[in-house]
Amino acid sequence: MQNAKDSFYMALRTRLATINPERTVLLRGTVRPGILVEEAEAPFSQPPSDVFILRWLGLAVDMDLGSTMVAEECEIAYQTCGTQSYGGLDRGWALSEMDEELVAMLKPFYAPKLNYTATPPAAMLTQVFWDEPALGPIVVQRDRLNRSAKVMVYSYQEQGE
């Protein structure tokens, strides 16, 4: 299951770097594309703005198939206060930009499954695939606009997983 989670994150991260190379985050001294996995970082008191945060939630397994199918629910949360140069008045515009980037990142709805514990990452036999995102409403928190989208990510368990 970890290979599917890693592959989904890396696919989105690679796509984001192409869609908007300027959306970056400085994390542990390194500038990276502005998307991170919450469970793979140190806990934060306030999630960073203008960054996509992946949070893994539910898990379901279908064992009635030739290969076991796993469904993992991923919440992608993001928030923005707009930019300082506009005094935050562009926060709606900034959130719309992130909405569009999210939808663009998720297309196509599949990606190769790789084992990232190997160096270089080893290609596996199946693909990771997912549903269209279910976008939640905007949540206003003072000058901050928040939104989250839920995506069901599917994969098949391969030999050795």
Binding site: F109, D131, E132, A134, M152, Y154
Partner: peptide, 10 residues
């Protein structure tokens, strides 16, 4: 549908 709660999905 793979997900009963998301009939338009996979």
């Amino acid at each position: 549908p793979l997900d009963d709660k998301h009939e338009a999905g996979q």
